[in-house]
């Protein structure tokens, strides 16, 4: 029954056109960025950086490097937007449309319904994260040769060079970690979706908290307290590009993200359980 209900939830989710906005935008944005890198001088700073380190530019100006560069802004801005959009819709849109009332005259427990919806949201988040990685690599490969991975993330103090094989592994692991970011932001918007609010409000509330956390985390005064910010733990995927992955930090953040997600789900469940569902 649970699997049938999950399948139905996925049918509902992936039957809607708006579910594909994120996928479509990734296709568009990544294609555009790849074209810009290929046909303009956008790669010059990268080339200079490689040359100053005494590396052969041709070895590292590759599909993997370009795909990883594309990943940074998209993971920071577009991915949160689309997972938040879906997370905010999952309950609130059904309540707004009246289908939630139709569901809740059935003998399904509210907690079970919510769990099915949350899982569907997570599956969407996984699909979107993986699509981001696959599309990025695909489009970068259309315009750039296969080769090593060069990555520079000053904020995380990461400057790394990997041969193609290791680079691909790191790129893949980074996307696995990106799933934690996508699921967590989806879970946050999902929590707000359980309140008696419009779907847009749930999405905006979720995104607002992410952005507020991001802004506070980047204020120098709060540097010592960065551990306390939600977004600090969402950057896990970036650590996968470090020469030596700081697994203790990864473990710490993963534990905290699990805590955040359990909290979001518990708050959502409690609010939803107590709510009156009216027409």
């Amino acid at each position: 029954m649970f699997l049938l209900q999950l399948r139905n939830e996925l049918v509902k989710l992936f039957g809607k056109k708006r579910t594909y906005i994120g996928f479509a935008m990734f296709l568009l944005a990544q294609n555009l960025i790849a074209v810009v890198f290929r046909f303009t001088h956008a790669t010059r700073p990268l080339q200079r950086l490689l040359e100053s380190g005494g590396h052969v530019v041709a070895d590292y100006l590759s599909a993997l490097t370009i795909a990883s560069i594309m990943l940074m802004p998209l993971a920071a801005f577009l991915l949160p937007l689309y997972v938040s959009l879906i997370g905010g819709d999952l309950v609130a849109k059904e309540a707004e449309d009246g289908t939630l009332r139709m569901i809740l005259c059935r003998p399904i427990a509210r907690s079970r319904l919510l769990l099915v919806k949350w899982l569907a949201g997570c599956i969407f988040a996984v699909a979107l994260s993986l699509a981001l990685g696959l599309f990025g690599l695909l489009f970068a490969r259309l315009y750039f040769p296969w080769g090593g991975l060069f990555i520079w993330m000053p904020e995380q103090e990461i400057l790394s060079l990997f041969p193609a094989g290791t680079g691909l592994e790191r790129y893949a692991v980074a996307h696995v970690m990106l799933i934690t970011e996508a699921c967590s932001i989806m879970g946050l918007a999902f929590m707000f979706s359980c309140f008696n609010v419009k779907p847009a409000a749930a999405t905006i509330l979720g995104l607002s908290l992410v952005f507020v956390s991001f802004i506070l985390e980047h204020i120098p005064y709060f540097k010592d307290y960065e551990n306390w910010f939600f977004t600090y733990h969402l950057h896990l995927w970036q650590l996968m590009f470090a020469e030596r992955i700081p697994w203790w930090r990864v473990g710490q953040s993963l534990c905290l993200l699990v805590g955040f997600n359990v909290t979001f789900l518990t708050v959502g469940l409690t609010v939803f359980q107590m709510r009156d569902i009216k027409s």
């Binding site: 209900q5 049918v11 009246g98 289908t99 009332r101 059935r106 003998p107 027409s279």
Partner: peptide, 21 residues
């Protein structure tokens, strides 16, 4: 005002709602 998933077929709607029971 019975609400349905307008983008899905009547059949899919029936299947979805009944499988909550």
């Amino acid at each position: 005002t019975p609400a349905f998933y307008d983008y899905l077929s009547g059949w899919d709607n029936l299947r979805i709602f009944t499988q909550y029971s």
